[in-house]
Design a protein around this nucleic acid. Structure first.
Lengths: 110, 110
DNA sequence: CGGCATCCGAATGGATACTG
DNA sequence: CAGTATCCATTCGGATGCCG
């Protein structure tokens, strides 16, 4: 992973991007549609949500279910690998949350 | 965390940036000096390593030990919160590694 | 050795408008 | 509803050079 040329670096950068962690964590709760995801992940734009989902789908972490044509109704849910990765991200987020008071305090004092 | 204005978002983005995960994971092994970190994290530039370390230090996750003046000898090591977060990142990296074959295979077939 | 300052191209990402 | 296309501002990040 510490080799710059290892493909794992690309996979990791997809997962640790700005939006992917939040999208993956949202999807651990339940399968969601586009608009629901946009609501769940505060501040994300259509463009970034679409792009993030495409990337996660390309890596096989998210599965895209097109249910009809007019009007479009598309569900997204985690694949098995996606579920495992998302769980770890959720744990990471939980730890960050626990340490948040200390982090905030440190920023003001330094 | 899903609120765009929550400060946890900023803390998370620091931890999930391109370089921070690799730096944090490197430091779980042992305290390291600047040059050693640059060697450990393949592909990182002086600028980004310096910037990443400053950010992690500002959040209180990494501690900077200046040991002498001429020549400068600076050790970096994880604080207790940093250690906890770094552990979770390491677990995440491990899972990504395990799923890597599937991810690579999925990319070529889709 | 361990950085910081500057420059500059590349990538990120938001707003808006548009489509089936 | 679920995106795509275009434009544009901001940021990222590498190369280089310099300093104590």
């Amino acid at each position: 992973m510490f080799d710059a040329l290892c493909p794992s670096r690309q996979a990791l950068s997809h997962v640790t991007g700005r939006w992917a962690p939040l999208v993956l964590t949202s999807l651990t709760e339940a399968p969601m549609r586009f608009a629901a995801l946009r609501r769940a992940v505060g501040g994300i734009s259509d463009r970034m949500l679409s792009q993030t989902l495409q990337q996660l789908e390309a890596d096989g972490l998210v599965i895209r279910d097109v249910q009809s044509a007019i009007p479009p109704a598309v569900q997204y849910h985690l694949s098995d690998p996606g579920q495992r990765i998302a769980m770890k991200i959720r744990e990471l987020i939980d730890v960050v949350y626990e340490e948040l008071p200390g982090i905030m305090a440190h920023r003001t004092t330094s």
